[in-house]
């Protein structure tokens, strides 16, 4: 490995996302090249200091100020506010519950009345043959992969179809015995 490749891959080296072989090559180069070793140390030390930077926190009045700003939102500018506020007021819940109860009672009373009902006409049932199972040997995926010269895919697709073929072979053998 040369120094340029080392620098190019150094980001992934820091993130530990290099494949094992490349990672080993990077470590070998670092052990051999003093300049790249110094570069690596410089980067790691800088990031270590950065990672240990204390986190800043919101001031004590943050929530109160946020609350005040949320209260300033007008209903037409705050659809979530309107929708949720409307559905959450106890008065609205009570109204909806009463309305639902009245509707249920009305529907129940209506169903008890003697009503002249028309005979139910069901649509005619049309029988149809079940679709035949596709032949796994001539599936579009296999044909496409054969033309593309990919020898692996047909084998994988055949392996996928294995249970079906075993069943078919069993059926043929039974026919042969007869």
């Amino acid at each position: 490995m040369d120094c340029r490749t080392f620098r190019e891959h150094h980001g992934a080296f820091l993130d530990d996302t290099l494949p094992g072989v490349d990672d080993a090559a990077m470590e070998r180069h670092r052990a051999e090249c003093a300049e790249c070793a110094a570069f690596d140390v410089r980067m790691r030390r800088g990031l270590l200091v950065l990672h240990n930077l204390p986190r800043v926190h919101c001031s004590a009045g943050f929530n109160e100020r946020l609350l005040a700003r949320l209260q300033d939102l007008s209903p037409d500018r705050a659809p979530v506010h309107t929708v949720l506020g409307g559905s959450r007021t106890p008065g609205m819940f009570s109204f909806l519950a009463v309305a639902a109860a009245v509707l249920a009672v009305t529907a129940g009373a209506y169903s008890l009345l003697p009503v002249e009902r028309a005979p139910v006409m069901l649509p005619p049932v049309i029988a149809s043959q079940p679709a035949p199972l596709p032949d796994p040997f001539s599936s579009p995926a296999i044909v496409a992969s054969a033309f593309a010269g990919a020898p692996v895919w047909p084998a994988m697709l055949l392996a996928d179809e294995m249970p079906m073929h075993v069943a078919e072979v069993g059926f043929q053998l039974t026919g042969y015995v007869r």
Partner: peptide, 18 residues
């Protein structure tokens, strides 16, 4: 200013979460 902007983020989240 960072705190103000964080507040603005939450205002927008509140308004547009739906």
């Amino acid at each position: 200013k960072g705190e103000d902007l964080v507040q603005e983020v939450f205002i927008r989240v509140y308004r547009h979460l739906h």
